[in-house]
């Protein structure tokens, strides 16, 4: 959502979200189910402890508190389009201090996964591209290969910037901070088996279709589960 846009999206039918938002909500709630105690998002009292505790909130366009507020009003899309979830440094200060016991960092992760699933990202803020390259690197070498990550990142986002970075790259190279050849860790197979194990978990998006309350509010997660179970049974028949 653009800054200065002071009008929230309009609902047309009492108690019913627009279709696109309903889809996002469905996805997010299923991601939220992976967070232990994720349903506590409902008990947020909007005190702002999270924002005040966040070391990087000054560069966020939506504060962590407002992420929950926007989720409440039924505007997940604007959260996914914000930089906030990608700026989070995962320090867990917010989660430690939250008086309502809400695992905000984990909720932001759930938002990130929703963004990836739905392919909605902030414009001109390619953090996800960076993150994607990083993960690829780690999968391949067991650790990051800085040079490869930077080159592929700039090639994919703004190749011209790569030229600008050349002097810096040269100085780093000279001091052996980066190298052209990637380094592998020992026992790469162990990392790979960890990743494989994680990926073998059934991800929410791979579950039988989950029915989510078509309400603006967020229904209880147990309700979501029941409905999901009901849908699954229906499918089995």
């Amino acid at each position: 959502m653009m800054e200065g846009d002071r009008v929230a999206f309009k609902l047309s039918t009492p108690g019913v979200l627009p279709k696109s938002e309903r889809k996002l909500r469905e996805e997010f709630l299923s991601q939220l189910e992976l967070v232990p105690g994720g349903e506590k998002i409902k008990s947020c009292i909007q005190c702002g402890t999270c924002t005040g505790s966040c070391p990087v909130s000054y560069v966020m366009d939506i504060s962590p508190r407002e992420v929950i507020a926007r989720f409440r009003i039924g505007d997940i899309e604007s959260i996914l389009k914000s930089r906030t979830i990608w700026v989070c440094a995962s320090c867990y200060a917010c989660t430690t201090r939250c008086p309502s016991g809400i695992r905000i960092t984990d909720i932001l992760y759930a938002m990130k996964r929703t963004a990836i699933e739905e392919g909605i990202f902030p414009s001109r803020f390619p953090v996800y591209t960076m993150s994607e390259g990083f993960v690829k690197n780690v999968n391949r070498y067991g650790r990051n290969h800085e040079m490869g990550l930077l080159v592929s990142f700039y090639l994919r986002t703004s190749p011209l910037k790569l030229l600008k970075m050349l002097p810096l790259g040269w100085r780093l190279f000279k001091r052996k901070r980066i190298s052209f050849t990637p380094m592998k860790i020992k026992r790469l197979d162990q990392i790979k088996s960890i990743v494989a194990k994680a990926e073998s978990q059934v991800m929410p998006s791979e579950k039988a279709s989950i029915m989510v309350a078509s309400t603006v509010g967020y229904g209880s997660t147990t309700e979501v589960k029941q409905r999901a179970a009901g849908a699954a049974q229906g499918g089995a028949k």
């Binding site: 929230a8 609902l11 009492p14 108690g15 909007q46 508190r65 407002e66 507020a69 009003i73």
Partner: peptide, 13 residues
């Protein structure tokens, strides 16, 4: 909605 600083129109019965 002062928590998101937005004007809202909410349909209800």
């Amino acid at each position: 909605d002062t928590l998101v600083s937005k004007f809202r129109e909410i349909p209800v019965d």
